[in-house]
Amino acid sequence: MKIVHPLIKYVRPGFLSTTNCAGCGNGIIAQSILRAVDELEMDIDDFVFVSGIGCAAWIPSPFFNADVLHTTHGRPIAFATGVKLSNPKLRVMVVSGDGDLVAIGGNHFIHAARRNIDLTVICANNGIYGMTGGQVGPTTPSGLKTATTPYGNLERPFDLPNLAKAAGAVYVARWTTYHARQLTKSIKRAVQKKGFSFIEVISQCPVQFGRRTGAGNAVTMMQNYKKNSVSIKKVDKLKENELKGKIIVGEFIDREEPELCEEIAKMRERIG
């Protein structure tokens, strides 16, 4: 009997070999996205996947057998804004990395959240610039030695879920690649949510992050994700020192706010 992967139908024919390094978290994120689409029984042809530049941008590009817009560094959210505004029927999902979305693209990120445009943004956060060889990023923990912080990172990392929440996102969650099932569930929720949804996925880069910072190989990194994760539901009961070095996971917010495309449609009606 020939065994076929249940998600293979969503993979572009002829694009089976991956560009990810062995142990990379991107594969888990890719599967979670496709599994969410599958479980929701949605037509992948109704989706447009938009990505920027970096390893995570290659999660959908070119592998997802759907409309894929692989854009410039930092700008996928702005491209996605144009796609969504000009055809609100399309489900628009941005999949990219932390450097792409919140360093070079940080301004588009907060403004899309502020507008509350109906996009699902998934950020694969590996805490480093992987593709260019392990330089410090906006999410690299303080003190860490990277290719461009040989004496340790003097800066502080972004707390992305709280950034998104403060900027106006209506659905925000954080998971790690260890939490594949929870991640899939969150993606389903985010896709169905009207408005700006953001999911951060803490993801291992064994080659650049693991090797350079001594975080170990992929298995070690994922074991640590498991060990160090704390549910947001339990955070209130913990003291500040107990939260040190922990990864707070779960849904940070799920609220209803007027969505931009719907507001535009109403405005058109109003002015006749």
């Binding site: 854009t71 804004t81 796609v83 000009s86 403004h111 058109r268």
Partner: peptide, 28 residues
């Protein structure tokens, strides 16, 4: 809006150019 179209004031010109490219790919 009078002709059924959409105006977007973006956060900068990088985003403006990106948005019109995205829009163009929907056939607009």
């Amino acid at each position: 809006p009078e002709v059924g179209g959409t105006y977007a004031q973006m956060e900068d010109e990088l985003g403006s150019m990106a948005a019109i490219i995205g829009a163009s790919w929907t056939g607009t």
